[in-house]
């Protein structure tokens, strides 16, 4: 009889050229993985290491020899001898335009990464004039756990994926409508507490623009007291059930201000439940106030 240990598949390496540099990555890797391996920083919005790529934002596009259009690096798997350009005029143009388009219709004031990339590529959202249509959505504050500010939403699908097949399988939200009128919403745009939402906060954790925000962060920002530079992050283990979820406790002034989970840990892959995500108030002796 044999001991049926799990043995990892033998890895096959694939070599491609990125900006003239030879890069070798395991079969099944994406062009983005190859770029990362080559030390090339790539802007991403809808990509998440713990999510299935939806390649909707198109900011990570690269030029692939033989392809008529640019290709999304986050989802395109490497094939032997691909020749990829990440810094050609076409690539720079598309990345700039995607960021510029988003900036022209969405409030990116709290999307630090995107703003840095916009500057890098010279995106100028003002080119579309002051009357350009915007998301124009009010902040939704429906409970004490997190808020939804769709004025900041870039429709990257990450929250939908995290709520759905990629993690939580609750499906409380979906992309709805079409075109520029598309919005993330519950059925009939009902309020969250009446929806299927179970407040795991996994959507908040993946949001790239702070459109979804923990109420703790929102309140501190409202009070002009959100100070990332004064915050530290400590990884520990959740105090509730015995699954052993890793928690990242973000603390400011010796108080927990939000909780995330490492997206590369095999227990959680960045996901938590309502207790792990929000059940920390008692540490500071807070009660639910009723």
């Amino acid at each position: 009889m044999t001991n049926t240990m799990n043995s990892p598949e033998t890895e096959v390496a694939v070599s491609i050229s990125v900006d003239g540099q030879a890069v070798s990555v395991p079969e099944g890797s994406t062009i983005l993985d190859a770029c990362t391996a080559a030390g090339i920083d790539t802007p991403t919005i809808c990509y998440g290491p713990n999510l299935t790529p939806v390649n909707a934002c198109r900011v990570c596009v690269v030029e692939l020899e033989g392809s008529r259009t640019l290709v999304p690096s986050c989802s395109r798997e490497v094939e032997p001898d691909m020749v990829v350009q990440t810094d050609s005029d076409r690539v720079k143009h598309s990345r700039k335009m995607v960021l510029e388009f988003l900036g022209s219709g969405v409030d990116l004031s709290q999307a630090d990464d995107l703003n840095a990339w916009s500057e890098h590529y010279g995106a100028d959202p003002n080119r579309y004039g002051p009357d350009a249509e915007t998301m124009n959505e009010p902040v939704k504050i429906e409970d004490d756990l997190y808020i939804r500010d769709y004025d900041k939403c870039v429709l990257c699908y990450k929250c939908v994926s995290a709520c759905g097949d990629d993690a939580q399988h609750t499906f409380a939200i979906s992309m709805t409508g079409r075109g520029f009128g598309a919005r993330i919403a519950t059925e009939f745009d009902g309020v969250l507490p009446d929806s299927a939402c179970v407040y795991c906060g996994n959507c908040v954790a993946v949001c790239p623009t702070n459109a979804l925000q923990f109420k703790t962060e929102f309140d501190l920002r409202q009070a002009a007291n959100w100070r990332p530079e004064d915050q530290s992050v400590t990884t520990t283990i959740c105090s509730y059930c015995g699954v052993g979820c890793n928690l990242e406790l973000h603390t400011q002034d010796e108080r927990i201000v939000k909780v995330t989970s490492p997206d590369d840990h095999s227990v959680t892959w960045g996901n938590l439940c309502i207790k792990g995500r929000f059940g920390w108030q008692y540490v500071h002796g807070d009660s639910d106030g009723d």
């Binding site: 909707a56 934002c57 335009m97 219709g105 992309m175 079409r178 075109g179 520029f180």
Partner: peptide, 15 residues
């Protein structure tokens, strides 16, 4: 008629 999925089409069509 843009489905709204990708940024170039969703925003480009409006602009």
């Amino acid at each position: 008629e843009s489905c709204g999925q990708c940024v170039p089409c969703r925003v480009g069509a409006v602009r």
